[in-house]
């Protein structure tokens, strides 16, 4: 029961402090999930993010379900999922009910301009940390470079990036296995 509550409250914090798309929760996940509770490793976060990109639904919810169910089965997945969506439901309902001019507020705009800077830096350092663990040899560096260039130059769907990289991983490792024999 205690762990379920911890899952719920950790993901509640993730939902409350994620400003931006799914990528923006990476620093929060690293702190809450990897460092504080050890529910998943940084490498696993990368797996979940990739799978979350190619499966339907909200990436934050997908990641929550993964980590929750890994830790505490179906109920754990439920606790994490409900945790990550509760702040949004409360905040948006309040805004929709009372502060429809909220989005036109200059103070909010200034606050978010500041938050965007912090998010850039926090996500940047998170990515750097994970890159050091995931880009371990020439093939992984080439895969990352290829996906980044593809994203910069085209509107390629994340599904294609993920499926192609998975295929590249399987093919490269298979060749390596044969060469090793």
């Amino acid at each position: 029961m205690k762990e379920l509550w911890e899952l719920y409250s950790s993901f509640f914090r993730v939902g409350l402090f994620t400003f931006g798309g799914g990528y923006a929760m990476l620093p929060m996940l690293q702190k809450e999930i990897v460092e504080k509770h050890g529910w998943a490793t940084e490498e696993e976060l990368m797996d979940y993010y990739a799978i979350g990109q190619c499966t339907p639904g909200v990436i934050a919810v997908n990641t929550g379900t993964f980590i929750g169910s890994k830790t505490k089965g179906v109920v754990g997945g439920l606790a994490a999922t409900l945790g990550v969506i509760t702040p949004s439901i409360i905040i948006i309902t309040l805004i929709a009910a009372f502060f429809m001019n909220y989005k036109d507020s200059e103070t909010v705009a200034h606050a978010f301009a500041g938050i965007r800077v912090a998010v850039t830096v926090l996500v940047g350092t998170s990515v750097w940390k994970i890159a050091k663990k995931s880009l371990i040899d020439l093939p992984t560096i080439l895969i990352a470079a290829a996906v980044l260039v593809l994203n910069l130059l085209t509107n390629v769907s994340p599904i294609i990036s993920v499926v192609a990289s998975a295929a590249a991983g399987i093919l490269l490792k298979a060749r390596e296995g044969r060469a090793g024999k």
Partner: peptide, 23 residues
Amino acid sequence: QNAMYGIRPASVAMITYACLLVA
């Protein structure tokens, strides 16, 4: 495992791209 070996750097690249956009 080999698929994940390829997917992780792709994740890193996609998040880097998203980070560049917000930057």
